[in-house]
Write a protein that binds this DNA or RNA. Structure first.
Lengths: 121, 121
DNA sequence: CTAGACAGCGGAGTACGCTCCAAGGTCAAG
DNA sequence: CTTGACCTTGGAGCGTACTCCGCTGTCTAG
């Protein structure tokens, strides 16, 4: 599909898509007239990109993951290892969030804003 | 305390601390000689800043929270509301992480990298 | 053939979050 | 009085992630 359709389907602007192609985050062929031609799975990939990005992964990291996936397209084990790595990162982030949540919960009801978690004695 | 000690205690560089002061994220007095003089609770505040930042809050957001806390220093209810807001945000982020985790888990073992969660039929 | 939608390219600009630098002031110790 | 650690300021520069712009090319419909 051409860039306009991809933009419409994913909500990612054309400029951003060109930028993503430039940094290797997405890949596509070219039509005889020079227009970009993206495969349909790019939509899925971009959804994944958005999610990963929202979770704090940089585009460079995400691009690297995509590249690794392309490098080992048949090795289910390599893929599993990669995903498990990401799961570990996600777990760590969730733990951090849980800690902040507990911290916030503890502060709710106490009246100390910046001094916060200090032993209220 | 002066900027060097604050930097040493928090692991935040002096340059960054001056930058934080410039954007209103931290506040301090001045000694007669012009040196910055930060109150001890700035250490706690910066730890909080680091955590919040790691979770994806921008410095502007964090500064705003700090300002709101300063505006309503006695209103425990306002504080609780603010913290509860943040807890909701944290919960949303945790849900997103859980979704990504599930997604990743589902992909582990399947051999489809970019096409990923597509109904493998 | 012309209009209009769509595409391409390169380059500038923006916002965020630092990071480094140069030139200079302050202060305690020797 | 000098040395050295510590502090000041302003401004430049950097990496990330876009975003906008102007100009030009392509294709389809009337």
């Amino acid at each position: 599909m051409r860039i306009g359709e991809l933009a419409a389907r994913t909500g990612v602007s054309k400029d951003t898509l060109r930028f993503y192609e430039k940094i290797g985050l997405i890949e596509g062929d070219r039509l005889p007239n020079g227009y970009r031609d993206f495969p349909p799975e790019t939509v899925t990939w971009l959804e994944y990109v958005r999610t990963a990005q929202a979770l704090g992964f940089t585009l460079a990291e995400i691009a690297r993951h995509g590249a690794e996936l392309r490098d080992a397209p048949d090795s289910a084990e390599a893929l599993s290892a990669l995903f498990e790595d990401k799961i570990r990162i996600v777990d760590a982030r969730m733990a951090a969030l849980a800690a902040l949540r507990a911290d916030l919960t503890a502060r709710v009801g106490t009246g100390c804003p910046l001094r916060a978690a200090e032993r209220t004695g």
